[in-house]
Simulated scan of single mutants.
Amino acid sequence: MTIGELLKEERLAKSKTQKEWAGNIISTSYYAKVEKNKHRITAEDLLVLLHLNHIDSSNFFQRLENKQDLIHEQEKNWGYLATNAVYHHDIAALKQIIQSIKDSELPQDKKAADVLEVEGMIETLRVNLEKNYQPNIKLQQKLKERIFNIPNFTKLKLQLYCDFMDFYDLEANKQIIKQIIKEKANTADNQIMLAVSAIINNFISSSMSQNHYDGLDYYITLVDQMPQLPELYLIKSSIAVHKYLIDYHFHKDEKYLDYCWKIAAGYRLTGMKDFGEDVATFIEQEKKKVADN
């Protein structure tokens, strides 16, 4: 919740018009835009406004903080549910999350941004799962613009790019990753390392799916050189599958397939059945390519 939204809530609770509420502190037209989050109000004017309408300022700011904390927890929960839905290829669950966001008390601009991200997740699933699906180019462009408009490779920008890098072609991804590596290669931030390694993992997988194998050992080495951290285990094991499949592609040695099947079995044994099935499907696809050649 924003300051403008909480002011509106307080005003309506006291059954006052905007003109009565704003008094002579700021113009009614300006105040109306504050409530709509189109204008900001200065700290000085806000305090005078609260005093004029007999609102305790400490209570007002505490309510604002509490509501913002609640919204933050809601967003974290939506993020968890969305990740789980993508993992299980559950488009219906993602649509329910979109409705929950629309029904929430988030500011309109934040609602639009969060809905766009979940719609992007649905788009990614449909592109990857539905054979005759016609990509929503307009939606994909909106997501690219959202990513592009974030300055520098922050955690948010890296996460968004990782989620939606399927919307870029292979050469564009290669150039973007080059910039990411240049900027973040020496980071000590575990979350940044996780995001970068996930991006590299997705790029390797996409490259292999498009029959581009040369030069991928460079990216594999980058992830191999990252510290052995618990949060990096899943990505590192996935990178290992790619490494062994690339070895199999070039050397045709069955031992590399055996290594891959053991990793896939490990996923299933540790409760990651869907992920294990996806890895098994990828192994079969790469195995078929070698057989066909």
Rank of each mutant, 00 (worst) to 15 (best):
K144P: 06
E119Q: 15
V118E: 02
P107C: 07
N173R: 14
I192V: 15
P151I: 09
E183G: 00
E145Y: 11
E123K: 02
E119P: 04
L106N: 05
N190M: 08
I199Q: 05
F167H: 05
V196A: 01
Q210W: 04
I200A: 05
E130P: 00
E145A: 11
D169C: 03
I177W: 07
D114Q: 15
P151Q: 11
A198F: 05
A185F: 10
Q159Y: 10
A188R: 13
K110F: 05
I176Y: 02
Y168N: 09
K174I: 00
N136W: 03
A198T: 11
S205I: 12
K102L: 12
M208F: 02
E105C: 08
C162W: 11
Y219H: 10
Y213L: 06
S205Q: 09
K138D: 10
N201C: 14
A112F: 06
A112E: 15
H212R: 13
G120Y: 06
D166K: 12
M208D: 04
F164G: 02
I180E: 01
I180C: 02
S104P: 09
Q141C: 04
N173E: 09
L139G: 02
A113R: 14
S207P: 00
E119N: 08
L216V: 06
I180L: 03
Q191D: 13
I137T: 14
N201Y: 11
V118D: 01
E145R: 12
E183S: 14
T187I: 00
L143F: 05
Y168P: 03
Q140R: 14
N173P: 03
E183I: 05
Y213A: 06
S205G: 10
I204M: 08
E119H: 06
Q108H: 11
K155H: 12
N149K: 13
I137C: 04
Q179Y: 07
T187N: 00
K174V: 00
A172W: 04
I199V: 13
S104I: 08
V196P: 00
L158W: 08
A185R: 14
A188W: 04
E145S: 10
